[in-house]
């Protein structure tokens, strides 16, 4: 199959959605002539014009709010927040408006919008351009939170998110934009809330999100040579979570390692651990549920410190090996 980068896959998804439905438009900072800080929207302005591709002022509250207003009045907006960190400036509109409008209004309307944003560290951009804030949104009923880990899912989940009648926080990862993978040319969807088994295995379940899926897969390759088979599970949509494949995997392996980049305290891993421990999968556990997460620190600038602050392949390999060997 043809291969595209993660960024190209996203762009193709946007282009197809905009071609298929004139209600779909994009807006954000530097997404026009510049093509977006990470190039995702490159060429869209030329193709669709400035009444479909809106270069906005640096106004994150109004980017989010305008998406809501447009969604409420018949459009299908796809907003871009240049770095996920900046979504902190949009929080009122997302948390108090987008997430609640349908419920507050008795289910009589909905807010079909997507807000894309790149999260994560690894680019040397330091503490204010490297955040992983997904759990802020996971904690808000009414929002959906999606984190694609590969080009195929990036396009398919984006198209599903655009179809979805709810506000979707769509979190991309900066280090994934240039990664390549097979991407069909047709306008396929990857359903939201569909957890994927990225690799089958029988010894340890590794539930990972976003780029950590890729790192877990690398660790799995290393450990396979040692006879340890990891089952790598990618939730893809953090909320609403399709939890059954995770529980089923833990029932099978009896061991669970949860990996994400965001700091551990108050992080998504706690939610996953609680769901596993609170289900019948608990009876199958042969070891404590382990979490491997970002440290509880701002992301440092220095290259070595930055790497040390978030889980790397070697960390996952080491943790999974210990779990497999019963060293906890």
């Amino acid at each position: 199959m043809r291969e595209l980068t993660y960024a190209e896959a996203l762009r193709e998804g946007l282009r197809q959605a905009m071609s298929a439905d004139e209600r779909v438009f994009v807006m954000g900072e530097d997404i026009g002539v510049y093509g977006g800080a990470f190039g995702v929207t490159s060429g869209l302005l030329q193709e669709f014009g400035d009444m479909r591709v809106f270069d906005t002022p640096i106004s994150e509250a109004v980017i989010a709010g305008a998406c809501i207003g447009a969604a409420l009045s018949g459009m299908r907006p796809v907003g871009e927040i240049q770095f996920m960190d900046f979504v902190t400036l949009s929080m009122e509109q997302l948390v108090l408006q987008a997430a609640k409008i349908r419920y507050m209004f008795g289910g009589k309307t909905s807010v079909p919008m997507v807000l894309r944003m790149p999260g994560g560290s690894g680019t040397g951009a330091a503490a204010q351009h490297s955040e992983s804030l997904e759990n802020w949104f996971v904690h808000v009923p009414g929002l959906k939170v999606v984190m694609p880990s590969n080009p195929y899912d990036a396009k398919g989940l984006l198209l599903a998110a655009i179809d979805d009648p709810n506000p979707v926080i769509f979190i991309e990862h900066k280090l994934l934009y240039k990664t390549k993978g097979p991407v069909p040319e047709d306008m396929y969807r990857v359903p939201l809330s569909s957890t994927r088994i990225a690799r089958e295995g029988r010894h340890v379940t590794v539930v990972a999100t976003s780029i950590m899926v890729n790192r877990a897969l690398e660790a799995a390759t290393t450990l396979a040579a040692e006879g340890i088979e990891l089952e790598v599970v990618d939730p893809r949509t953090l909320t609403p979570l399709d939890e059954e494949p995770i529980l089923a995997s833990v029932r099978k392996t009896g061991k669970a390692l949860i990996v994400h980049e965001a700091p551990g305290t108050g992080g998504y891993g706690g939610e996953l651990a609680a769901r596993i421990a609170g289900s019948d999968a608990f009876d199958y556990l042969e070891a404590p549920i382990r979490r491997l997460t970002g440290l509880d620190t701002p992301i440092p600038y220095n290259r070595n410190l930055e790497r040390a602050a978030v889980p790397q392949v070697d960390d996952i390999t080491r943790e999974a090996r210990k779990l497999a060997r019963g060293e906890y």
Partner: peptide, 29 residues
């Protein structure tokens, strides 16, 4: 919402960003 009354708002100024989006929608449509 049937009458395009998109609601009262408990947040001071909460409707202001949305209004720009409704304006964009009108312009695009």
């Amino acid at each position: 919402v049937e009458a395009n009354n998109l609601g009262a708002n408990g947040i001071v100024g909460g409707g202001l960003p949305m209004a720009a989006g409704v304006g964009m929608s009108i312009k695009m449509r």
